[in-house]
């Protein structure tokens, strides 16, 4: 490694609240066990890329005993589907996931009650998973598709239900800020390893070790994807992106002028998921979307300090800023607190 290349590591921690801030949050969902052992879910949700459709399919499949690939999720339409409010605030898995879970439990109970009659067993002994339904401790077992057929044709029951999940938050006191802004919190931390070239001022982020509590990971690969994506957005924030204005006019008005991280800028990300289930909600899951990128920039700045002894306090840490800070450090003859 050349003499001008210096490596360093830094750490930062973080926390975040789940769902709407300092205001009641609520989401509704409808669920139906459908012909062929499939499921229909309707709720106010559209994929924005975070993987929510897959998460909801997993939740519905798990609760109803059907296969995830047999779950159909309706469109998000204010005139056709229950309200589940906005796709933001790291609330999708928490709010809508729990609403879907509760709606599915309602629908499932109707089917289980019918099958208890059919099999003359206690409804509590009935279980369903992956397209099969059975009564524990007995020989009764059949395909979900058959049981739904019996439920409709013989008993005239469609197993359908609607439910709502509420996260109880309160506003903040206007004077001292006291209140209960969220009921679920997540915590995280990341270590960054950088290489800084003292000749050019360029910083390369080489590695991120990320550890995040998500409550319960419904789909761990999806959680990893959120961490990787969040880290790379934070790389932009920490090292290169800047929407520059001059007297109210942008100087970064196109992708040619606004620099984004590309495949060549991204670190290797090693993730570790911590699960501290939310004690208040049915699924125990919390969230990861926004929290994923909070510790990255300070971890990078702390790593830059470790590498070259200059502290960048104003983002982004561009090559010019690094070179200026190095110059200043040399002039002051001090290695600390630039």
């Amino acid at each position: 490694m050349s003499l001008t290349k210096k490596r360093g590591r830094g750490v930062a921690a973080s926390w975040y609240g789940i769902a709407r801030t300092a205001a009641m949050d609520q989401a509704g969902a409808w669920a139906e066990i459908d012909d062929g052992g499939s499921a229909k879910i309707s709720t106010g949700v559209t994929e924005i890329g975070e993987g929510i459709l897959t998460v909801l399919a997993q939740v519905a499949a798990d609760e109803l005993g059907v296969k995830p690939e047999n779950v159909m999720i309706g469109e998000n339409d204010t005139s056709r589907s229950p309200e589940a409010a906005h796709a933001g605030a790291t609330r999708q898995t928490y709010m809508i996931g729990n609403a879907v879970a509760l709606a599915c439990r309602g629908a499932r109970q109707k089917l289980f009650d019918v099958m208890a009659k059919e099999w003359k067993v206690d409804a509590n002994t009935i279980k369903a998973h992956n397209g099969e339904i059975w009564s524990e401790g007995t020989n009764y077992k059949m395909e979900m598709s058959e049981s739904i057929h019996i439920c409709k044709k013989k008993y005239g029951v469609i197993p359908v239900a609607g439910e709502n999940y509420t996260s109880h938050h309160t506003g903040l006191d206007p004077v001292d800020g006291s209140g209960r802004p969220w009921q679920a919190y997540v915590f995280g931390g990341q270590v960054a390893e950088v290489e800084v070239d003292t000749a050019t001022g360029e910083v390369q982020l080489l590695g991120i070790w990320a550890c995040h509590d998500v409550g319960k990971a419904i789909n761990p690969k999806g959680v990893e994807g959120q961490i990787e994506g969040g880290v790379v957005q934070a790389v932009g924030q920490a090292l290169m992106e800047n929407y520059e204005l001059e007297k109210g006019r942008t100087k970064s008005g196109s992708f040619a002028k606004y620099i984004l991280p590309t495949s060549l800028d991204v670190p290797k990300v090693t993730s570790k998921i911590v699960e501290d289930p939310d004690p208040l909600s049915p699924l125990g899951a919390k969230g990861i979307g926004e929290p994923a990128m909070v510790p990255t920039s300070p971890a990078i700045m702390n790593a830059i300090y470790d590498a070259i002894g200059v502290r960048i306090k104003s983002l982004p840490a561009t090559p010019e800023k690094i070179l200026n800070a190095l110059k200043e450090k040399k002039q002051n003859g001090s290695r600390k607190f630039n």
């Binding site: 915590f187 070790w209 911590v274």
Partner: peptide, 24 residues
């Protein structure tokens, strides 16, 4: 900070796991 009692807080676990993960 907003005077709410925490019903769980995993930050120490997270930091311990991270320290190991990164071989700090």
């Amino acid at each position: 900070h907003t005077k709410q009692e925490l019903n769980s807080a995993s930050i120490n676990t997270v930091l311990n796991e991270l320290e190991k993960l990164a071989s700090w």
